Computed example of a mutant assay.
Amino acid sequence: MTPSPGSPGSATSPGTVTSSGTFIVEPFTRACRIVREDADHVLIGVSPGNSYFNARRVEELARWAAARFTAVDFVYADLHVAALFEALGHPPEHAARRAAKELKAVRRRVLGGVEAAGPPGARVRVHALSDFADHPVYRLLHRRVRHFLETDDEFRKGCDAMVEHFLAGKAGPGGVTGAQRAACLDYVAAELPFFLDTPGILGVPSSLACYHRPIPLTELLYAKGGGLRAARNQAYALVRPAEAAA
């Protein structure tokens, strides 16, 4: 994920920075703060190959979330990973093996961290993103994402910014290729339904999606007006370790 140009809460209705034990929570807007205070549900997205999500961090996140939200879901991205490795120059068999290895490792870390946290009083679940491939609401949202990628220049620019950041340092000396860009856009598009309408996918009253860095699309998804926008009961917040924020 890529930091957005503005600071968290730089939309028209800024959120409030709050400290929650081991983490600092920064809701993106005032509406996001209200969803945070309702505490119905929190979604924690986990990226494979990201050293931030070690077993200890997952355990801390699970303990923090379980103490403050009625329900908690971890979702780790496992779609289009092999295709992305292949686009970056790995032979198909090697790309498939590397993807399988990384996904096995991230699944083990997430499950191990959640188990170690032993959170009382909350429903904590772990999913792969591919678990939702046939979910009707997820599929509808994914089709909308693909449609806006093709028809909305502002949305496409935001997605392109995420791709450029993700591929920085990974592309060859000639820069990002068309195949790399397409594979990375597929990866990004697969994640975006959960930033748009997690309540619709998981059947919860409202949901706070959290990540440790801003994404370029937050300004757009939580702005007023037409186009692709997050559901009213969908919120976003930066959730960062207190020591890192300090």
Rank of each mutant, 00 (worst) to 15 (best):
M1I: 04
T2Q: 13
T2C: 14
S4K: 13
P8M: 07
P8S: 07
P14W: 03
G15I: 07
G15D: 03
V17M: 15
T18I: 15
S20C: 10
S20R: 10
G21D: 04
I24F: 05
V25W: 09
P27Y: 12
A31V: 10
C32I: 10
I34F: 09
V35T: 14
V35K: 03
D38W: 03
D38T: 14
D38E: 10
G45H: 00
S47T: 05
A55Y: 09
R57D: 05
V58T: 07
L61A: 09
R63E: 12
F69D: 02
F69P: 03
D73F: 00
V75D: 01
D78P: 07
L79R: 15
A87F: 12
L88E: 11
L88N: 10
H90N: 11
P91H: 06
A96E: 11
A96N: 09
A96M: 02
R97F: 14
R98P: 06
R107W: 05
R109W: 04
G112R: 05
G113Q: 01
A116E: 11
G118S: 15
A122C: 10
R125G: 09
R125S: 12
H127S: 03
H127L: 04
H135R: 01
Y138R: 01
H147M: 10
D152V: 08
D153T: 13
E154L: 13
F155Q: 12
R156L: 14
H165F: 15
L167I: 12
G172D: 11
G172N: 00
A179R: 11
L192R: 06
F195R: 09
L196F: 02
L196M: 00
L202P: 00
C210R: 08
L220H: 10
L221E: 04
A223D: 03
G225M: 04
G227I: 05
A230L: 14
A237T: 02
L238T: 10
V239M: 08
V239K: 06
R240F: 03
A242K: 14
A242T: 13
E243G: 08
A244Q: 15
